[in-house]
Design a protein around this nucleic acid. Sequence first.
DNA 1: GCATGATCATGC
DNA 2: GCATGATCATGC
Length: 451
Amino acid sequence: MKGTPYTTEKAILERAQEVIGIPLKCVDKKGRLETGKGAIGTVIEESWFGYAPNSETEPDFPEAGVELKVTPYIRNRDDKIRAKERLVCNIINYMEEYTKTFETSAFWHKCKKMLLMSYEHRYDIPKGDLTIDRAILFKFPDEDLVIIERDWKAIIDKVRAGKAHEISEGDTMYLAACTKGADASSMRKQPCSDILAKQRAYSLKAAYMTQILNKYIFGDVQNERIIKDVRQLQRYSFEELLIQRLAPFYGKTLTELLAMYGIRTSAKNVTEIILTKMLGLNEKMTKSEEFQKAGIIPKTIRVNRNGKIKESMSFPKFDFIELSKEEEWEESGLYNYLAPTRFMFVIFKERSDGAFVFDRVLFWNIPNEDLEEVKKVWERTRETIKRGVKLTVTARGVENDLPKKKDNPVAHVRPHARDTSDTAPLPDGRMMAKQCFWLNNTYIEKQIKKK
DNA sequence: GCATGATCATGC
DNA sequence: GCATGATCATGC
């Protein structure tokens, strides 16, 4: 097709490594740098490798079967590297992909070998001064590939079931179907239903990319793997295997489990400590390779004797000023936390004698229609903060006019602070107790009853 | 009894 | 010192 001189892995990698350290403004020959999203990738493709960007089905270097991907990362305050975003691959053609196998799929055809080039994204530096700092040829390790194959099948099985419109990012572990379109309303036909579905693309989750960066690009961080024998993953999903290992403990009380492992703690994350022991791990469960790569978040749910869940579920707190600046829902912090995340619900049920019994583990992600409800809560929160929150001092504390539980069936906003002195600035300069989004306890109740 | 504001315990 | 996960407490 386009005929670049780079037809072997070796030639491609050598050329890629030559760009390391060169400011992008010196690479860009066509003034692409300021064109917005994906501009840096385009600069490398056009000006460094000398081929026209394409969105076709072939990999960028067809002879070598290599797809070029430029990916940004951010350094946390503690200097740790994390992916800035998911790595977006090709758009899923619902009308064709459902007839394929993983081996013949468009995803595998295009992305089985990737030239990954990374750069540090900095908000304080013009794009032209940024530089590519690493370039590697990436092939999925076997232990990831079994999971990715299953992810692919989960996505395509929904298409086959006429449920392409119900696909969501949180359905899968590493490979996900993220929304992609000129605007959020880009809709596509699907083969087994008349309902239009959002246009989506294969993508590697940000959590997965963070691990790729830390493990294969910048070093070789090793995390403990929960499923040590990869062959097990050919028969069962990761989630099934985890449940198989935890099921023998169903029915035991919290007190019994604590005694069993000699745990004496008043820590609020006691559930994770117990799960770690039940799985026989040396490191914390959430530090395991699979949890890190998939970004799975465990959440403890206590069901009362009467079947009610007392507490709503909190998320990380948000920054008032950042939230007020957010414009697109799908680029918001809340969306990018909630949509791709798979939650591991660890359910404890209160027995008639008041003891809490380990009932079961349930993997869950938010359905699309409920995510639309959360969007409303996000919009109202943002509007209220932009307009100026009303704060009223009462006998119960400082009341505000952010969305309450009664205002929406799925989510609300509430304080998430250490105490009343734990505040953050509003856009207008006033200080307010730190807040976060919560999933309503009544909503969680319905979700776990469904399964 | 619930909704909503307030707070706890720990790890990094 | 703060983020995180989790739960408490009381006015209505």
